[in-house]
Amino acid sequence: MNRSMPATPDNKSRKSKTTTTSTSHTVRSIRKALELNNIYIDDSGAETRGAELIETARVIVKGDRQSALKKEEGLALRETAKKYANSNELTFLVHVWNKFWGVEDTRLVESTVDGELEDEEEAIRWMETAWEKDHLRCNWSADFTRGSVPPLVILDPALKILADHAPRVKNPKPDLTYGLEQAAFSNDKQRTNDENGAGLLIDMVHPFFVVEAKSAEKPINEAENQCARDGAAMVRLKRKFDRLAEGIYQDNKAQHGEDEDGNHVADQISHNKEEIPIDHYRTDTRAFAFSLAIVPQDAKMFFHWVEEAYSKEGQLLTINWHANELHTYNLKFPEPWIELHRDMDNVLDWGTLTRKQELKDLCDKILERKNSNKRQKT
């Protein structure tokens, strides 16, 4: 099986077209709403503070590979993107991904009369389930679970209306999400995943990479906003498992600004930032993820990470979720398609090798701590 083809979700068919209209004003307003909730895109100060971690991410993405697409394959990808640029997002992404990962054209679903794909079930008939060897799983257009991302708190009524109607921002639902199958873990680790909410979406645990696509009529900035929201959820999940392994997740909820469900709700629109000066930041070097925003002529690879802001007295003021651009691909030319294919391969290898082993180790530590607590009580 091809490792990168999306899986069929266990939900009923839904139409993928949205009835909302994107404008530059709407996109800027949504970005403002995200920033008010401590979710930032390409914040220059954070880029400086997190420079070492961002460079680590760049090394992962830009690693050399023995195999690469040929130039004619890059040309074919460019022509496919151009051909479906004015189609809806579903049609565009299905045909590009089909060509991108080398799936036989005969496996493509038959198009509707006007050539547009409207139905998710129609689109996924040709999609494989997973790359079985390394338990990579890719889900198509699946909702993130409730409470998986810090809630958007918006006080301005006009801004709230925009956020409520912005596609897939308030409640993340990436076009493509890459993560791991439960089968990658032993039975006891699977129980640990289940008990601690590792299943951020259906039939997948520990997602680490998402793709948000737009067709020609939509700005890539809209996809960037969605990536920032998705990335915060993925980073938050990894951060949770890190802290569970350290034994601080349950004990220090109040300090880390969480409610009983683990949502970061303390001062999402933080007046502390105005009333108490930030003295220093602390970068979480272990919890990070990747995303791709793509339109017919451009794509951007983002790196997602988190930092804590403290007062001089050591009081936690805010938890900041960052999305920093690692690379831009000019898809009007064949070479960037080849580069994008290599970079995505590197991210998927990192997720199914380094990241997967790290998560297995974390599950071992969580289990060990749980068993130790049981022994102490007996």
Results as ranks from 00 to 15, higher is better:
I248S: 14
I276H: 05
R282G: 04
T283K: 04
N272W: 08
H280P: 00
K253N: 03
A266G: 00
T285N: 13
D261M: 09
A293T: 01
G247F: 02
A293P: 00
E274Y: 15
N272G: 15
H256G: 03
I294Y: 07
T283S: 04
R286V: 03
R286S: 09
I278F: 09
F288H: 15
H256A: 03
E275Y: 11
N263D: 02
D261W: 10
A289N: 06
T285P: 00
A289V: 06
Q255G: 02
K253D: 02
D261G: 10
T285R: 14
D267I: 00
N252S: 10
I278C: 11
V265S: 09
V265G: 05
I294D: 02
K253L: 05
F290Q: 06
R282N: 07
N252F: 03
S270R: 11
F290N: 06
P277E: 10
G257R: 02
V265K: 13
Y281D: 04
Y281S: 11
N263F: 01
D279T: 03
R286K: 14
Y281R: 07
D284N: 15
S291M: 06
I269A: 10
T285G: 01
V265A: 03
D267W: 08
H256D: 01
I294N: 05
D279F: 13
S270C: 15
Y249G: 01
A293D: 00
N263I: 05
I278R: 12
V265M: 10
I248Q: 08
G262W: 08
I248H: 05
D259C: 13
A287E: 05
N263Y: 01
E258V: 01
G257H: 03
D251M: 09
I269K: 11
Q250R: 09
E274S: 12
E274W: 13
I278N: 04
S291D: 04
N252C: 06
E274H: 14
Q268E: 03
I248G: 02
H271N: 09
A293R: 03
V265R: 14
I294F: 03
A289H: 07
V265H: 07
L292T: 07
E246Q: 14
H256C: 01
Y281C: 07
I276W: 03
A289R: 08
R286E: 11
I278V: 15
N252Q: 12
K273S: 09
D284C: 13
P277K: 13
K253F: 03
I248K: 13
I269Q: 12
Q255V: 02
I276S: 03
